[in-house]
Design a protein around this nucleic acid. Structure first.
Length: 803
DNA sequence: ATGAATCGGGG
DNA sequence: GTGTACGATTCAT
C-alpha cells in the first residue's frame, strides 16, 4: 500500500534484534499512525592503509567477540579532499560506540600499528542520522510504501515500510494542540499538585480537589490521586498530536511524574503505552512522550527568541505580554496560598490556572509554525529542534549539508580541547562607546546579515584558510596575517550562499502573495528560519564545542566586520552626521539640524553604492529621543544599555530593565518611572523629585512590605551550599523556627537592620515586619542603583537623591 | 583582578 | 548515553 504521511516525531526501537526507525505522524485524512523502517547503524574509519586496516579491524573485533554487519570501502571527502574510508555497518545503535572503541586502539597514538588514522560519525544519534541520510526535512510530508503491521499502540494504523520518499508539499495538516499547566503548593512540607488546566480547541478544563463552588469548566475530584488519574485520562481522551507547556520539561512534567510515583498512578500518555521518559540533555531533562510531541515552548523562547525580545526575563507573563499583548491573571503568590489553605477565592485560582494554559496555547500557535520551518531547514524533528540552541541548529544544518556533499562530519572536540579553545580569545566586533546622555532625532542603521555576507564575499572557511594556491593573491584579512582562497569555494561559504539564495527566492515569492494568506505565513516563517541559521553560523566558528571550529575564521569575520563598520563611521562623519553609538553591525546617528530622515536616506543611498556586492546597510528606524549609558558609567556589565522612544511614544529598552526577581518590586518600579519621566516627559527634575520621594518614603516606612520582598530560589539542598547567600540564610532561619525548607523552594526575604553581612540580616518575610527593615539597604542597594543606572549619565549623583 | 559559585524558567 | 548548558552576575580570595 501507498500512503501520504505527515511526519511529527521519530525514534527507534529494537525488535527481534533488528534496529527499526519509528516514524509517528498523520495521514492526509487525519488518522494517527506509526511507520516502521529497518535501518542499520554505521560509522566511518579513515585508514592509512586500507587493506591492512580492514584485516586488523576484523581481527580486533573477533578478539573482542563483537559482531558487525559488514565492512565496505567507500570514498568520502575530508575537509574537501577525497579519501578512501571504511564504512563499518553495525547491528544495533549502541554497537557503534563499542565497535569504535575496539578499533581506535589501532591508531598509532593509542599504541596500535597505525593502520587506522581516525574514526568518524560514530557518535551521531541513530534516528537523527536516519533523517539526514534520507534527506527528510524534519516535519514534512512523506510517501510511505509498505504493508500493515499489528501493534498494541494507541494509533489508527501501523505500517512496515519498504520505501520512504519525501514529498514536495509545504502544507501543514490540522494538528491537535493541547496546552497543559499545573499549580502546586507545599502542604505540610511536601509539594503536591493542587490544580491542573487544559486548553485546546474544544477543551477548556481545570481539575482540582479543593472544594468550592465552581463554574462548569472546573472538575472537582476527591483527592490528589484522583486528580492525577484525571490528568492522565484527559490526555488520553483528548488524544492530542502536540502537548505544549511553558517550562514543562523542568517543572510540570517533572512534578507530575514525582506525584504519580508517590500516588502509584501510572503516567502513561504516549501512543506506545510506555511511561513518560525523561531524557537528560545537558542540565535539563526533556519530558518525552512516544508518539505525542511535547513542546516546551519556554525552550524555544529562551534559546532562539530571547535575543530579539525586549524583555530580559522570560516569565510567561513577560513573554505573553510582549508577543501576545495579553498577560497572566495577577495573583499574589501568598494570596494564592492563603486562598488554597482556607478554601476561599478558589475561582480566581482556577481562572489563573486556565489562563496560563491559554497563554501557553496561544504562544504555541504563534511560535510552532516558526519551529516547524526551522525543522525543515535543519532537517530534524521539532521535538529536538524546539530544544536546540543556535549552535546545535547550525551544527545539524551543517551536518546535513556535509552529508549531501559527500563530506565527512568532523568529530566533536574532546573535553581538554574544549577547555583549550575556551581560553583562546580573539578581538570581537567594533564598539564605539555611546556618548553618554540624552540625544534627539536619532536614526538606527544596521548591516543586513553582516557576517553571512562577509563569509560568502571573502570565502571564509576552515579549508580555504591560508591555501597554498592563493599565497599572495587570496582575500586578505584586514589587520591579520591570513588570506582565503579565491579559486575554490569553501564548505561553509557554499552552505551560507545556499541559505542566502533560498531566502532571496522566498522573499521574491512573498512579494506576490497576500499577507493574510497561509502561504505567506509559511514562507515568511521559512525566510526567518533561513536567516537565523545563516546569522548563527559565524558564531559556530568560534564556539568551543564546534565540529567546524576555526578561531582564524571567527576572527577573520570580526576583522572584516570592523573594517567595514569603521569605514561607514568615517563616511558618516564626513557627511556631517554624528555617530552616537556603534556596535558590531549597527550604528546610531544624529544630525545637528532636524532633517535626520532625509539625511539618513541620502547617506544610505550613497554608502550602499560604495560597498562590495552583498554588503548592505539598512534602516532600522527613527527615534525622537534616546538615553545611552556607556560601559563605565555605573558598575555593571559590558552589556549595551540604552532606551529609545519613537514618534508614537513607544519605549524600546535594551539592557536596562532590572526586572529580575532578585530586585525588589519597588526598585523595578523606580527604574521604569525614571525612564518615563526622562524620555517621554523630558523632565529630569521630576524624575529626581520622584526618586527623592521614594527614598523619603522608605525612611519613614511608608512603603509596603510586599514591595520590598526579594525572591530567590533554593536550587539545591540547603546543606550543600558552600556560599551562604541571603536566600540560603533566610531559608535556614525558616528551618530553625520549625518551618519546612527544601530544594526548589522559593525563598521570600527582606533585609533587616542590625549588624553583620547582608546575608546575616536576611529575614524570611513571614517573620519580619516593616519596622525591622533596613532602610539604608533598600535605599542604597536597591532603589538608588536602579535609578542611577539611568540618571548617572545625566550628571545626577547619588548624594543628590538621598541626603 | 581572578576564579568559584550561583541563577534562570515553573509554583 | 537517543547531547550531562551556558552566559550573566555576584561572592570570596
Amino acid at each position: 500500500m501507498k500512503l501520504k504521511f505527515f511526519l511529527l516525531d521519530t525514534d527507534y526501537i529494537i525488535e527481534k534484534g533488528i534496529s527499526k526507525i519509528r516514524l509517528w505522524g498523520k495521514s492526509a485524512d487525519g488518522k494517527n499512525g506509526v511507520v516502521f523502517f529497518d535501518s542499520d547503524p554505521y560509522f566511518y574509519v579513515l585508514p592509512s592503509d586500507i587493506k591492512r586496516a580492514k584485516s586488523e579491524i576484523e581481527r580486533a573485533l573477533e578478539k573482542k567477540k563483537l559482531r558487525i554487519k559488514g565492512i565496505e570501502e567507500v570514498e568520502k571527502k575530508l575537509s574537501g579532499e577525497l579519501r578512501g574510508f571504511l564504512k563499518i555497518t553495525c547491528l544495533l545503535p549502541q554497537d557503534t560506540q563499542k565497535v569504535r572503541d575496539a578499533i581506535k586502539v589501532l591508531e598509532k597514538e593509542r599504541g596500535g600499528t597505525g593502520s587506522v588514522i581516525d574514526e568518524y560519525e560514530y557518535a551521531i544519534n541513530f534516528y537523527r542520522r536516519f533523517l539526514i541520510d534520507k534527506r527528510i526535512d524534519g516535519n514534512c510530508w512523506l510517501e510511505i510504501e509498505g504493508e500493515k503491521k499489528d501493534t498494541d499502540y494507541r494509533v489508527d494504523f501501523a505500517i512496515n515500510a519498504r520505501k520512504i520518499n519525501v514529498l514536495e508539499d509545504i502544507s501543514i495538516p490540522e494538528l491537535k494542540l493541547l496546552a497543559f499547566d499545573i499549580e502546586t503548593f507545599e502542604v505540610a512540607g511536601k509539594k503536591r499538585i493542587v490544580m491542573a488546566s487544559f486548553y485546546g480547541r474544544g477543551l477548556k478544563r481545570v481539575l482540582t480537589d479543593q472544594k468550592a463552588s465552581y463554574p462548569d469548566w472546573v472538575d472537582l475530584v476527591k483527592d490528589e490521586r484522583e486528580l492525577l488519574q484525571g490528568i492522565v485520562k484527559t490526555f488520553q481522551g483528548y488524544n492530542p498530536d502536540i502537548i505544549v507547556t511553558y517550562y514543562g520539561d523542568s517543572f510540570d512534567f517533572q512534578v507530575l511524574n514525582e506525584r504519580c510515583q508517590a500516588n502509584k498512578v501510572k503516567l502513561i500518555i504516549s501512543k506506545d503505552k510506555s511511561e513518560t521518559k525523561f531524557t537528560r540533555r545537558a542540565r535539563i531533562s526533556s519530558a518525552r512522550l512516544k508518539g505525542i510531541v511535547h513542546i516546551d515552548i519556554f525552550n524555544f523562547i529562551s534559546n532562539i527568541l530571547s535575543p530579539g525580545l525586549q524583555t530580559e526575563v522570560l516569565t510567561l507573563d513577560a513573554v505573553s505580554s510582549e508577543l501576545l499583548g495579553d498577560r497572566k491573571i495577577e495573583v499574589d503568590y501568598q494570596e494564592m496560598l492563603e486562598a488554597w489553605r482556607k478554601g476561599k477565592n478558589l475561582l480566581k485560582l482556577a481562572e489563573y490556572c486556565l489562563k496560563d494554559a491559554e497563554l501557553t496555547y496561544r504562544l504555541a500557535e504563534l511560535l510552532l509554525p516558526q519551529s516547524f520551518e526551522i525543522s525543515k531547514t535543519v532537517g530534524q524533528i521539532c521535538f529536538d529542534v524546539s530544544r536546540m540552541t543556535y549552535g546545535q541548529l547550525v551544527e545539524w544544518h551543517l551536518s546535513r549539508e556535509a552529508n549531501e556533499r559527500g563530506e565527512i562530519i568532523p568529530n566533536q572536540p574532546k573535553y581538554a580541547e574544549i577547555l583549550k579553545r575556551k581560553k583562546a580569545t580573539y578581538v570581537g566586533g567594533f564598539v564605539k562607546e555611546p556618548t553618554a546622555g540624552i540625544h534627539e532625532n536619532i536614526s538606527v542603521l544596521d548591516f543586513r546579515s553582516l557576517y553571512p555576507s562577509l563569509i560568502v564575499s571573502f570565502n571564509i572557511s576552515p579549508e580555504t584558510l591560508n591555501c597554498d594556491c592563493c599565497r599572495g593573491d587570496g582575500y586578505r584579512v584586514p589587520g591579520l596575517d591570513y588570506w582565503f582562497c579565491k579559486r575554490r569555494q569553501g564548505f561553509i561559504p557554499s552552505v551560507i550562499k545556499g541559505l542566502i539564495e533560498k531566502r532571496g527566492e522566498i522573499k521574491r515569492r512573498l512579494k506576490e502573495l497576500k499577507k493574510s494568506s497561509l502561504e505567506y505565513k509559511v514562507f515568511n516563517n521559512r525566510q526567518y528560519a533561513l536567516k537565523i541559521i545563516a546569522n548563527a553560523t559565524y558564531g559556530y566558528f568560534g564556539f568551543a564545542g564546534s565540529k567546524w571550529y576555526s578561531k582564524e575564521c571567527a576572527e577573520s569575520c570580526t576583522a572584516f566586520g570592523r573594517y567595514w563598520i569603521k569605514k561607514t563611521i568615517e563616511e558618516a562623519k564626513n557627511r556631517g552626521l554624528e555617530v552616537i553609538y556603534a556596535d558590531t553591525d549597527s550604528l546610531f546617528l544624529k544630525t545637528r539640524n532636524k532633517e535626520i530622515e532625509r539625511e539618513t536616506e541620502e547617506f544610505l543611498d550613497y554608502i550602499n553604492k560604495k560597498f562590495p556586492g552583498v554588503l548592505e546597510l539598512d534602516l532600522q528606524g527613527y527615534y525622537e529621543r534616546g538615553i545611552f549609558i556607556p560601559k563605565g558609567a555605573s558598575k555593571g556589565t559590558a552589556k549595551k544599555r540604552y532606551a529609545l522612544v519613537d514618534k508614537n511614544g513607544e519605549l524600546l529598552i535594551r539592557g536596562l530593565e532590572t526586572v529580575r526577581r532578585d530586585w525588589c518590586s519597588l526598585a523595578k518600579e523606580v527604574q521604569r518611572k525614571v525612564l518615563v519621566f526622562v524620555l517621554k516627559e523630558k523632565d529630569l527634575k521630576r524624575a529626581k523629585d520622584y526618586v527623592k520621594g521614594v527614598v523619603e518614603k522608605i525612611r519613614k516606612k511608608e512603603v509596603l512590605l510586599r514591595d520590598l520582598i526579594i525572591y530567590e530560589e533554593l536550587t539545591k539542598p540547603i546543606e550543600s551550599y558552600k556560599q551562604i547567600g541571603p536566600h540560603v540564610m533566610a531559608a535556614k532561619k525558616i528551618r530553625e523556627r520549625g518551618g519546612e525548607v527544601g530544594e526548589g523552594m522559593l525563598v521570600m526575604f527582606v533585609i533587616t537592620r542590625g549588624t553583620g553581612s547582608i546575608s546575616e540580616r536576611a529575614e524570611p518575610v513571614e517573620f519580619s515586619s516593616l519596622e525591622e527593615i533596613d532602610s539604608d539597604y533598600y535605599i542604597h542597594h536597591q532603589v538608588l542603583p536602579a535609578a542611577l543606572r539611568v540618571l548617572q549619565v545625566l550628571g545626577v549623583k547619588g548624594e543628590e537623591l538621598a541626603c
